[in-house]
Design a protein around this nucleic acid. Structure first.
Length: 422
RNA sequence: GGAGGCGUGGCUGAGUGGUUGAAAGCACCAGUCUUGAAAACUGGCAUGCUCGCAAGGGCAUCGGAGGUUCGAAUCCUCCCGCCUCCGCCA
């Protein structure tokens, strides 16, 4: 959520952001309702002040004064209650609009209407050329006997899957590798809840707009699509000391996504599944844009280090304004090379959020100057499984149908090579 | 699942209808004293909104939302959360 004061004072900037994002937010309506709300609030507060004063007279005045004050209070009450109703309606309308006003893209974000307008920033790694007939990763998964989709669907429904054999040790190894990289860099490791209360989803700006993307339980909880939700909730309603910042967390959790509206996309395999595992990087830092920029680059580099250690060719792209999530100021995706599709595909997503989430979460810190500010937050994938296998298996496949495990992963995965079972 | 209890400021904890934004203690900050520290003493110490150039006002907040009342931390209703005991259980 943006700061209404900021919106008032930077109307053009906000209008421009809305235009760039191609969303149909009615800024004039918001500003008008804000103005009305402030005016009525002033009236209400004045009436309440009168009421408080009269109440004091009743307490302390003589019997005569008390009688007069009581009469005055009765009529005052009627007017006040009417005004309060009016205010409540305005507040509700105001809140509703504020919840749907998106964050402001950084000037460095390229303007565009969709993901087609995302811009490549850099590439790394050599795209493999096979002198044999390379398999796609679904074939590899089955030939290596490390996944079972038929039974996955039988048990868990559409997009269901089992991982088995080395598919399991490989997964554990990937999480472990990512965690070790992060812990070495001072990130505090967490296993964070996959279940979250509605308010946490609201405060991390996942609700109200993306409700259809989440699974809900019958007791009113939601299954988290990312550890970002619970990890951001961790400091909800806290005032931290400036010296506590930055907070760096590496959170592992299962993640659940309905993938509503994606029928037909990536139906085969385990690139797009309802249930996956992820190690997520989270940073809370001081409310300075330069700090956010610095940590954003750092988070992105860490993920590049991880995919680099996995010897995967990748590129980093910057998302255009048309492909920028609601709450993000700026976002990079890391995409890893997928030989069978002859293209890079998204495996990581690194975001600057500024105080958009922390304002709702009320995560603040007391600065050296004694002022209390909303912290800035950032997040990025460290590793998401099983998605990463898409690229990993295909890139490292050998002529004999086996898959060579990259050096850095071997000690974590407990194996050097996975051989076909048939 | 059954029964009961509880939710007050950073923490502990008073407060059951009328200057209670809220006693007291702890913690924290500043000062006095001290070579320095501790102790002691003195003072300060919630958040948000709003009016004002400022000084300084005003309003709200005692889990949340309603209600009763001239007036609610205090009474009523609903919701949320937490705790204890029993049962079940990885």
């Amino acid at each position: 959520m943006l700061d209404i004061k900021f919106v008032r004072e930077n109307k053009d900037l906000v209008a421009n952001a809305i235009r760039k994002r191609h969303c149909d937010f009615d800024l004039e309506k918001l500003l008008k309702i804000d103005q009305e709300r402030k005016a009525v609030l002033g009236e209400v507060e004045k009436l309440r002040a009168d009421q408080n004063k009269a109440s004091e007279d009743i307490t302390r005045g003589s019997a005569k004064e008390r009688e007069a004050a009581l009469i005055a209070m009765r009529s005052l009450k009627e007017i006040l209650s009417k005004k309060e109703d009016e205010l409540k309606k305005l507040e509700e309308g105001f809140e509703k609009l504020m919840l749907t006003l998106p964050n402001i893209p950084d000037p460095s974000v390229p303007e565009g209407i969709s993901e087609a307008d995302n811009v490549e920033l850099r590439k790394s790694g050599e795209i493999p050329k096979f002198d044999f007939e390379a398999k796609d990763y679904v074939t590899l998964l089955l030939d290596l006997d490390i996944a079972d989709f038929e039974r996955g669907v039988k048990v868990a429904g559409f997009r269901g899957y089992f991982l088995k054999n080395e598919g399991v040790s490989l997964s554990f190894g990937l999480w472990q590798l990512a965690l070790e990289v992060l812990v070495k860099k001072g990130f505090v490791p967490f296993i964070s809840p996959a279940l979250g209360r509605e308010n946490i989803f609201m405060e991390t700006c996942k609700l109200p707009q993306f409700r259809e993307d989440f699974y809900a339980t019958d007791d009113g909880l939601f299954l988290s699509p990312t550890a970002e939700v619970s990890m951001m909730g961790y400091h909800e309603n806290e005032i931290l000391a400036e010296s506590d910042l930055p907070k760096k967390y590496a959170a592992f959790s299962p993640c659940f996504r309905k993938e509503a509206g994606s029928y037909g996309k990536d139906e085969r395999g385990l690139f797009r599944v309802h249930e996956f595992m992820k190690v997520e990087q989270i940073i809370l830092c001081k409310a300075e844009h330069q700090e956010s920029i610095r940590f954003h680059e750092e988070l992105t580099r860490i993920s590049e280090e991880i995919v680099g250690a996995l010897k995967l060719p990748y590129r980093v792209i910057i998302n255009s304004t048309g492909d920028l999530p609601f709450g993000a100021v700026k976002m990079y995706d890391i995409e890893c090379w997928v030989p069978s599709e002859n293209r890079y595909r998204e495996t990581h997503s690194s975001s600057i959020i500024h105080d958009f989430q922390t304002r709702r979460l009320k995560i603040r810190y007391k600065g050296a100057d004694g002022k209390i500010r909303f912290a800035h937050s950032l997040n990025n994938t460290a590793i998401a499984t099983p998605r990463i296998l898409h690229s990993l298996l295909e890139v490292h496949q050998q002529a004999d149908g086996s898959v060579l495990i990259p050096e850095a992963l071997r000690k974590f995965a407990g194996t050097d090579i996975i051989r076909p079972k048939k």
